[in-house]
């Protein structure tokens, strides 16, 4: 008879416990809530897939999802090209490299809720630096507590300010890893700046760019703190993104069942789109 060494299980145990506590157990709680109804007193009744059906048919959910999709779309469309352009224009050697890197990293070091509060004060129409400037010097009627457009412009500007650096730093890391020999070869061939970008820099940046797009997608799709602190979802519901709506349902209205069902749908969407991005961007990967 073959003797199996059972001690191996002890080595796997810590990982199991860690994953269980940090992912599986909380997730199961949510799954548990999502299929039950409660009227308090800690009594629960089976509700099947009812909450899921309600959420998927709910206009409120559709609206929040639409706003979320628009927000993420704008973020990606602005931050990724902007990040690439900034990374390309940064010096690759010399005295200015650390200066640029530190300057770039600064916004990312600020806690998220502080960023929200900062931009809130920054844009106050009567005392905020930007708010006062726009209203009283430029003469535009800018008030994000009244105008949905102003509110959107502000949360987009804030996110671009806060997170473009991430794209810049990742792309920059890809750029500096390109040996000088490639640039020399291109120079000798007489390749244009565009060709250098298209055939040398972009292929070499592709992997980090994939990671940058994925991270920015996930973070912006799940964003909560900054827009919540800045606008609280207003004016009206105009900046109520998915996560903000979810918190309103779960903690504001204490509808645990619908909130749980919505979290799972939210999670599924994030997972699916991330998978889609990753598959599309690495489809023709040759390196």
């Amino acid at each position: 008879m073959r003797k199996v060494n059972q001690r191996g299980w002890f080595f796997v145990l810590p990982v199991l416990v860690l994953v269980a506590f940090n992912a599986l157990v909380p997730m199961m709680t949510v799954v548990n809530y999502s299929v039950q109804e409660t009227f308090g007193n800690n009594q629960f009744f089976w509700h099947g897939l009812g909450w899921f059906q309600d959420i998927l048919r709910s206009e409120r959910f559709h609206a929040a999802l639409g706003r979320q999709a628009l927000f993420t779309f704008l973020i990606l469309v602005i931050e990724v090209p902007l990040g690439v352009i900034i990374a390309l224009s940064m010096p690759r050697k010399g005295f200015w490299v650390p200066v640029c890197l530190v300057t770039m990293a600064l916004p990312m070091l600020i806690p998220w809720n502080v960023v929200g509060a900062m931009w809130n004060i920054f844009t106050l129409p009567d005392i905020g630096l930007l708010g006062y400037f726009l209203n009283h010097v430029v003469g535009i009627d800018y008030n994000m507590t009244r105008s949905p457009f102003a509110a959107w412009a502000t949360i987009i500007a804030m996110d671009v300010w806060h997170w473009t650096s991430l794209v810049v730093l990742l792309c920059y890391a890809g750029l500096v890893s390109i040996p000088d020999a490639y640039y020399q070869a291109a120079k000798i061939d007489g390749a244009s700046n565009w060709s250098v970008f298209r055939y040398i820099q972009l292929p070499k940046m592709k992997q980090v760019l994939t990671i940058a797009v994925l991270l920015r997608f996930m973070d912006s799709f799940n964003v909560y703190t900054e827009p919540f602190v800045l606008t609280g979802g207003g004016p009206g519901n105009s900046t109520t993104l998915l996560s903000i709506d979810l918190v309103k349902i779960a903690l504001g209205q204490f509808d645990l069942g619908p909130a749980a069902a919505m979290s799972l749908i939210y999670f599924a969407i994030t997972l699916f789109v991330s998978w889609l991005f990753y598959t599309l961007m690495t489809r023709n990967d040759t390196d």
Partner: peptide
């Protein structure tokens, strides 16, 4: 009108 061949293999990766 010159050519340079390096110690490293320098070719355009996606061509």
């Amino acid at each position: 009108n010159i050519s340079l061949v390096h110690q490293f293999f320098v070719n355009y990766p996606h061509m």
